[in-house]
């Protein structure tokens, strides 16, 4: 189960809406081992594409170095799908490389209501999990 604050959910959705129709991506870091997402870090989608996202390689190095220095890990890795449902694609599954992270997908295909879902992706297996939002 992903337990996450309402303001962080809102921040992810706002980022996804802002970058629509391109996919938006980012991380919510938290203390290592805590499983608590705390620090919202929107990332640039270096691919600037409506069907693909990738963190810029230098931004990625800086992000991991900063998390290391602060004893954090990527508790949530999020990205948006802008024309399809918030479910991991084959591409998402094959490149998922953080077995301890919650992979959050947001769909912005509906202008009125964003779909917000969370998954574990481990060794190519996808498991959807419940999202508990703290207000």
């Amino acid at each position: 189960m992903l337990t996450i604050r309402r303001d962080l959910v809102d921040a992810i959705i706002a980022h996804a809406r802002k970058d629509h129709p391109d996919e938006a991506c980012g991380v919510i870091a938290g203390p290592a081992g805590s499983d608590e997402p705390e620090r919202f870090i929107p990332m640039l989608n270096a691919a600037r594409s409506p069907t693909f996202y990738e963190f810029d390689s230098m931004d990625l190095l800086q992000l991991y170095r900063e998390m290391d220095d602060r004893d954090e890990e990527p508790v949530v890795i999020y990205h948006s799908h802008t024309a399809t449902e918030a479910y991991p694609s084959r591409t998402d599954i094959s490149y998922a490389s953080e077995p301890n992270a919650h992979y959050v997908l947001v769909s912005t295909r509906d202008e009125g209501e964003a779909e917000f879902r969370s998954y574990r992706i481990v060794d190519g297996d996808v498991t959807e999990e419940e999202v508990k939002i703290l207000s």
Binding site: E23, C25, V27, M43, A47, S49, P50, T51, F52, Y53, E54, F55, S57, L60, L61, Y64, I77, H79, H81, T82, A83, T84, P88, S89, T91, D92, Y95, A96, S97, E98
Partner: peptide, 9 residues
């Protein structure tokens, strides 16, 4: 570092 990448494609 593995790339952080994916997408609906």
């Amino acid at each position: 570092l593995p790339a952080v990448a994916g997408g609906s494609a």
